[in-house]
C-alpha cells in the first residue's frame, strides 16, 4: 500500500507525519522523500547510508556533421529547448523535457543523446525502514523526472510512504500519482484552509481517496473543520499545538520522541487506511 503525504501549503508538518508513519509501523516499510527541492525527511531518520548516485536525464546533442540545418527539430520542440542560430542548432539543456521528439523528427538522424545531471538519489536503511531521497541540483528547474525516479524504489512493500513536495502543480501531482491514499496535512488557519481546498480538489480530480490531518490544533479557527464537513472529507487525526513538538523537531527529533502516544495513533491510521481500501 502506498500512502502519499502532501499539503497544499508548505511547512504544515508533512514530513513530520510521513516520518512518524514509518517509524510507528511494525513491519518493513519504505519512505520516499520526493520533496526533492528541499528534502528534509532524512534529518529525522538516523539511518545508515547505502548508496548515493547521480541522476541524469537524456538531452539532445546535435551531430554537426550530419545536420543539414533544416530546423525541423527546433520547430517541433514545444519547450523552446532548441533554436536554429546561424549555422548551428543551439540546445538549452535545462529547458528540455526529454520527450524524444527531436530525435524522432530529424530526417538526418543527427540527434544523439547525452546526459544532463539534474540531481542525486540517496538510499539508506535503518532497522525496518528503507529510505530513498532525491535531491535536485541547485539551479536545475525540472523536478518531475527525479521524483519519478525516486518513486521507482517504492514497490512491493507492506507500506510505502511518500513525502510529497508542497503545492498543487506538476511536482506534487507527479509525487501523488499512483498512490492508494493521500493524507493532506494542514493547520487551522485561513491559509491552511485555502491551500487544503486546492490540494483536496487536485487529489479528488486524480480520483484517489484522501483524509486530513489537522496539525497545530487549538488556534480557535474552525474553517478547516467546516470545509472538511462540507466536502465529506474525514479528519483522521488532530495534533495539538505544542511548542515542545516544534522545539524537538528543530533539532532533528521526531514527534514520537515527545509524544510517545502518537505511535498508536499512527498505527491506527495505517490500519484504518488499509481496511478502508480493502473494503
Amino acid at each position: 500500500m502506498t500512502v502519499a503525504v502532501a499539503s497544499g501549503k508548505g511547512g504544515t508538518g508533512k514530513t513530520t507525519v510521513a516520518v512518524a508513519l514509518v517509524l510507528s509501523y511494525d513491519r518493513n516499510s519504505v519512505l520516499l522523500d520526493c520533496d526533492v527541492e528541499e528534502p528534509n525527511a532524512g534529518f529525522f531518520l538516523r539511518s545508515k547510508s547505502i548508496k548515493k548516485e547521480e541522476f541524469s536525464v537524456p538531452v539532445p546533442v546535435i551531430d554537426a556533421a550530419k545536420c543539414n540545418l533544416c530546423g525541423r527539430c527546433a520547430d517541433f520542440c514545444s519547450f523552446n529547448a532548441l533554436a536554429l542560430a546561424g549555422s548551428k542548432i543551439l540546445v538549452f539543456r535545462d529547458l528540455c523535457h526529454s520527450c524524444g521528439g527531436c530525435s524522432l523528427i530529424c530526417p538526418q538522424n543527427a540527434v544523439m543523446e547525452e546526459k544532463n545531471i539534474i540531481g542525486e538519489i540517496h538510499s539508506a536503511e535503518s532497522d525496518k525502514i528503507f529510505f530513498v531521497e532525491g535531491t535536485l541540483k541547485i539551479g536545475k528547474a525540472m523536478s518531475p523526472p527525479l521524483i519519478r525516479e525516486v518513486k521507482k524504489y517504492g514497490k512491493g512493500e507492506n507500506l510505502t510512504v511518500i513525502d510529497c513536495p508542497p503545492g498543487n502543480s506538476c511536482p506534487m501531482i507527479t509525487a501523488v500519482r499512483g498512490a492508494d491514499y493521500v493524507v493532506l496535512v494542514t493547520e487551522p488557519t485561513p491559509f491552511g484552509r485555502h491551500d487544503l481546498s486546492l490540494a483536496a480538489e487536485t487529489v479528488s480530480e486524480m480520483k484517489i481517496p484522501l483524509g486530513v490531518i489537522l496539525n497545530r490544533y487549538g488556534s480557535g479557527y474552525k474553517g478547516v473543520e467546516e470545509f472538511c464537513e462540507k466536502r465529506g472529507i474525514e479528519i483522521i487525526l488532530k495534533i495539538d499545538e505544542d511548542i515542545k513538538i516544534a522545539q524537538a523537531q528543530s533539532e532533528g527529533k521526531t514527534i514520537l520522541d515527545v509524544c510517545p502516544e502518537m505511535k498508536d495513533k499512527m498505527c491506527g491510521i495505517v490500519d484504518k487506511i488499509q481496511k478502508g481500501l480493502t473494503k
Partner: peptide, 10 residues
C-alpha cells in the same frame, strides 16, 4: 515568492 528552489523560484 514560492517555496523550494525549482522552476517557479528561479
Amino acid at each position: 515568492g514560492p517555496p523550494g528552489i525549482g522552476c517557479p523560484v528561479i
